[in-house]
């Protein structure tokens, strides 16, 4: 089902992760992603896995919600894995015809899947525990300095927020139109690429028309409710850091240090065994 996409889908729960300032969560997500590429060796990822595991546990969001987000990148992931597996030069392990799997290839492929997997799960944790409004509020505040460079930060944040709100609605709409055309014996599945692309016209035209109509309606509704850009607005949920947010920052710094240290120190302690 099209509705299975979890990115941008908030999961309602009462947890300390939910209560954190969105800026903390955004910052942490960015740092976490950087850490995935900065850590070296599997011990660093061990620390990352532990950190991610604890955050997921604290968030009270069922794990399967995070995994759902993975489905959409399975294809991308397998392509990268295969490329890395076969095309990395180095010490051959297995030889299949002219292709060889190298030790370095395996290492890179595993690293990449871990990185991508953690990246998706990590960002899912953020989107699942933060309402899109909070998220855009957080982004807006963090990017506010860009306002001086005439970047319309508020407008961009508002656009993101609205896009997120309408994703599930448009998904449902796609489903409906698809069924309606199927009921008229439309065929979305057979034929060559050109035919298939053409068969999407009866789906896409109504979908675009509907999206434009909605956009129009929404713009009117927003104006009717006195929306006039970011200048005069106050906030229902203004952002200010609490004690827990500072603690969270400290924990993240601790995590980074631990990750780097684990990557560098544990192999040395274990006598230089490099996996």
């Amino acid at each position: 089902m099209l509705r299975d996409i979890t990115l941008g889908q908030y999961y309602q729960a009462e947890s300390v992760i939910h209560r954190l300032d969105p800026r903390v969560k955004l910052g942490t997500t960015v740092l976490f992603i950087i850490s995935l590429f900065a850590f070296d060796g599997f011990w660093g990822y061990g620390v990352a896995a532990l950190f991610l595991g604890i955050v997921i546990k604290l968030s009270k969001v069922p794990f399967k919600f995070m995994v759902k987000g993975m489905k959409s990148i399975v294809f991308l992931l397998s392509v990268t894995v295969i490329f890395n597996l076969f095309l990395t030069p180095g010490e051959p392990l297995v030889q299949i015809w002219k292709l060889s799997i190298t030790r370095e290839g395996v290492r890179l492929a595993v690293l990449l899947s871990i990185r991508l997997g953690f990246l998706i799960i990590g960002s899912s944790v953020m989107t699942l525990t933060t309402t899109p409004n909070q998220l855009t509020d957080g982004l807006e505040r963090m990017l506010r300095p860009l306002n001086k460079m005439r970047v319309p930060v508020h407008e961009i944040a508002m656009m993101m927020s609205i896009a997120l709100r309408f994703i599930p609605i448009l998904m449902e709409e796609t489903d409906k139109i698809m069924k309606a055309q199927l009921a008229r014996c439309a065929d979305f599945e057979s034929g060559n690429l050109v035919r298939r692309a053409k068969s999407l016209v009866p789906l896409l035209v109504p979908l675009f028309i509907s999206a434009f109509r909605r956009a129009n309606d929404l713009a009117m509704a927003m104006e009717a409710r006195c929306y006039r850009g970011g200048d005069h607005r106050t906030r229902m949920k203004p952002l200010h850091y609490e004690k827990r947010d500072y603690i969270a920052y400290l924990i993240v710094i601790g995590y980074l240090v631990a990750g780097v240290a684990a990557g560098k120190l544990i192999p040395v302690l274990l006598g230089g065994v490099v996996l």
Binding site: K176, I177, K179, A180, Q181, L182, A183, R184, C185, A186, D187, V201, P202, V205, P206, I209, S210
Partner: peptide, 30 residues
């Protein structure tokens, strides 16, 4: 699907052709 014709709610939202006649032709064409 041809023998059991189903008209959905707000069926006008499924129209896509440039003229009325071509749109009605979509089903039989399929």
């Amino acid at each position: 699907r041809a023998r059991v014709g189903l008209v959905f709610q707000y069926p006008e939202h499924q129209l896509f052709e440039t003229d009325v006649f071509s749109d009605v032709c979509f089903g039989p064409k399929n």
